[in-house]
Amino acid sequence: MPFAEAADGTALHYEVHGSGRPLVLLSGQSNSRRWWDPVRGGFDAAYTTVVLDWRGTGESGRPDTDSYSTPGFARDVVAVLDHAGIDRAHVYGTSMGGRVAQWFAADHPERVDRLVLGCTSPGAPHGVERGPEVRAALGQGDAAAARRALLELMYTPGWLARQGERQVFHTLGDPGMPPHARRRHLRASARHDAWDALPRIAAPTLVVHGSDDAFNPAANAPLLTERVPGARMRLIPGARHAYFEEFAEVATPLVLGFLAEGGS
């Protein structure tokens, strides 16, 4: 079980799978490496995938300090790649992982081959925030109702119905996170603002978003595409926030095709 050490001494757990050129997969807010479990196999066949537990999640350290920020998470990614002996990699970040990927690509261009930004945002004040009705649904006191609201933001009703009584979803947050880490993740994602850094991204970039994403509104996709030099955009019709899982038959080949343009 490999651990890297962050600049502040926090232990950062990560895993390496597959074979081929390196591909870093970055998960969403308050989620561990398990976010990628349902789809990672589709990437392992072509790439050496690196997945990590953000500080505060999974097996990583959980400091109750002001060390949680999207630029800080990007520095944690650097520590993981250094420990794994990886100088350069493709990077695919979704949701908050996409916010972190923006900083990683802007601040460390020499380490990024190709970049995929999924269901993410440039952040306030230039991004499009979720509506008040979404915030109210997620913030309600009834935990079961709030969980159901989050599920319906992640997945379409039809797909959820086909899951039946399935209890395990890897996109709803790491159940083992302490409250202080959840608060700090929320604050880190909410304070993200990479608008001025986006033009510095030099890697070929693909922006992917579900057309029906209300959790992180799809209107953010064209904002990122216009701001990152040479970026291209693909919307997945009918998809919500977890497009990469529910629509994996579309999304995974789309991303693999884009990455393959840079050589295998």
Rank of each mutant, 00 (worst) to 15 (best):
A144P: 01
L160W: 04
T156H: 04
L153I: 05
R166H: 05
W159Y: 12
H170C: 10
V168C: 13
R166N: 03
L160M: 13
F169R: 01
R147A: 12
Q167P: 13
T156K: 00
V168N: 01
T156R: 11
Q167G: 04
G158K: 05
R162F: 06
A149E: 08
E165L: 15
V168A: 02
A144L: 01
A161Y: 11
E165S: 14
A146K: 02
L150Y: 07
D142Y: 04
G173I: 06
F169H: 00
L160S: 00
P157R: 00
F169T: 01
T171D: 06
R162G: 05
L172F: 13
W159D: 01
G164R: 05
W159I: 12
R166S: 08
A143T: 09
R147F: 03
P157G: 08
F169P: 11
F169D: 01
Q163H: 03
A143Y: 02
V168S: 14
G158M: 04
P157T: 04
R148L: 10
D174S: 14
R162S: 14
R148W: 04
E152P: 09
Q167W: 00
G164S: 03
L172M: 10
D142K: 07
E165M: 08
E152G: 07
T156P: 05
T171W: 13
R166V: 07
D142R: 04
L172I: 08
G164F: 05
L172C: 15
A143L: 12
A145Y: 07
A145R: 11
F169S: 04
M154F: 14
T171Y: 14
T171A: 10
E165W: 11
F169M: 02
